[in-house]
Write a protein that binds this DNA or RNA. Sequence first.
DNA 1: ATGATGATATTTTTT
DNA 2: ATATCATCAT
Length: 739
Amino acid sequence: MSADPILEPLNTAQRAAVTAPLGPVLVLAGAGSGKTRVLTHRIAWLIRAHDVSPHSILAVTFTNKAAGEMRTRVEGLLGMPPGVLWIGTFHGIAHRLLRRHWREAGLVESFQILDAEDQQRLIKKLLKAEQLDETRWAPREVQWFINSNKDEGRRPRSLKAGNDPTRAQMIRLYTLYEEACARSGLVDFAELLLRSFELWRDQPAILQHYRQRFRHVLVDEFQDTNTIQYAWLKLLVGSESCPFVVGDDDQSVYGWRGARVENLQQFGRDFPAVSLFRLEQNYRSTGAILAAANGLIANNAGRLGKTLWTNGAQGEPIRLYAAFNERDEAEFVCQRIREHLAHGGAHRDAAVLYRSNAQSRVFEEIFLSARMPYRVYGGLRFFERAEIKDALAYLRLIVNRRDDASFERVVNLPTRGIGAKSLDTVRAAARTAGIPLWEATGACLGEALGARASAAMRGFMELIERLAVEVAGLALHEQVDRMLAATGLIEFHRRDNADRGEARVENLEELVSAARGFGGERLETELPPLEAFLAHVTLESGEGQADAWEDCVQMMTLHTAKGLEFPIVFLCGMEDGLFPHQRSIANLDGLEEERRLCYVGMTRAMRQLYLTYAEQRRLHGIDSFSQPSRFIKETPEDLIEEVRPRLQVRRPVAPGRFARATGAEQAAPHRHAEYSSARLRDPPPAPGMRLGARVRHGKFGEGVILTLEGSGPQARVQVNFERQGPKWLVMQYAKLEPL
DNA sequence: ATGATGATATTTTTT
DNA sequence: ATATCATCAT
């Protein structure tokens, strides 16, 4: 047993979980405790020790990356491809089911997947058709209403408006949206899950089949499951199968998009026979980093309880840097990375983590001028680029003429003389007849449409029909290539003389390469290559930037960093209002989720952890002062070493105070001591600016003065705004108006 | 059909 | 500050 590659590399707790008796298992796995390892070794163990057929194992993850990693690692353990074993994301697996059982699920065979952007466009179209004001009915909110109801398993008919007219309208829009999707053969992300749940719920024979097949269901990141995902799992598992779920309540950071941490506790109630395991030994971080993270997360109530520990060294203290402003912050980080490089380190060892994407800008500027190579994660991905989506829309029309979203997108792209009026005619016809735009257009030709418009429309329809015929039987990349030529998309962008045109042509050419490289292996349901490709690109829209493996400083949001690790981590923008974010500060749940996010950030660090904040930060064009993040104060003080204590000289308060500061203050690392010592005895810096006075700000609206510091134009003032909460402002720039 | 203008919002993101 | 987006004018 000692040379056993499956059990030998595991510690006691991991081994206990992997070899747990066949039955429901819940593994609470702390950050860096070998979560994926337990999952993959469990799969290998089932196959080897229990002679379980890979055919009867289903492993579910949230991201394609995690699914891919799991597949590779299982393959490595078994020394062969796991073949029939199903490993995939919730959405990927739901999609697979719907392709197989499209008829029973009430879909059309060639249904296409709508991504978030497509969905919003469709909603906007609906609002316009309904002549609803977009300021009253924000598309984002309609979208949120629809998606969150789907995530909770609710169809429009099961919703009650009560006496709420707003809600009634929302429900109506949800209904209209569903009808539009059905007409067009479109399925959004949430629909994939809900629809496959309903498929099982309403088709006992099909459910029975999968229940019998998947005797072992493994789930990663269980704390991120939403209501419908959990219901789906429960339905599948029934009373016969063995669910093996792994999660960490302390890393639940997706509550805002429907994830239910409570599912962890619920699992215990739904499966009373559960075996519970805790993985608390951490293999990633130093003792100091773990102690800091543990100390911070201890401030959350209602945890399942878990304390990470390590056999390793205590390591270096957590470093705290109080920057003068956001540029100083970025320069400090840059400097520290340089030192790391000077000691022989690599760029990629360092990660800059922040709460919101906007923060990356300053770092980019500073890094650029310092010639520090970096890579920003997140942002637009390849298949989300406008020109790529245009091209895909053509391909989707070739596959499914009823796809209204795609029709609208490209009917006049490149421009072929089909104007808004003609389209309105067609839309009206489609709406009254309840048919797709494509059909409606056919009916309008020569009748409702004038001669010119008819000719243009006919040209468009013939183009699609001709392409569909021409392209049939060609290799996938030739299909794409032919389409690009025939539609004139390439030509269209080539004519765009602005330099973005060139980039777009390149991207379109890249799309052809992507098609050439598309294996289409997966998906047992033998989808035709083009349709498989289209599903693939919306479900796995690919990495943000191609050169992922160059030696660059890594920059990303805290959310994106979840699941990753780096030797050196900089947690930046540690300011109240930014992190925890202003919008989360008000309620306890929101604040606790932010705290977990901070915990996630800290536990990404292997050797060194830096916390930085800026005393003054320009955000949305205005400078404001903020307090250091409460998360800094919640981190045990003895673990923190201030890199450079604040120098009074750098603070633009009253001019008279400038003379004092000398380097001598370096020796006194008194944390935060001077923060709260506001000097309230100063005279009011401007007429009407007193404590408690009401003021108006151009951007923030009205508020009440809480604190005044300093005098003259350099004075700072803290105002509690009705809408945005408390803010520090510089009097000189704030242009406050007394009320 | 294209570009200028002005209003508006600006946490986090996968699929 | 800045990006996006709708509306309007050319």
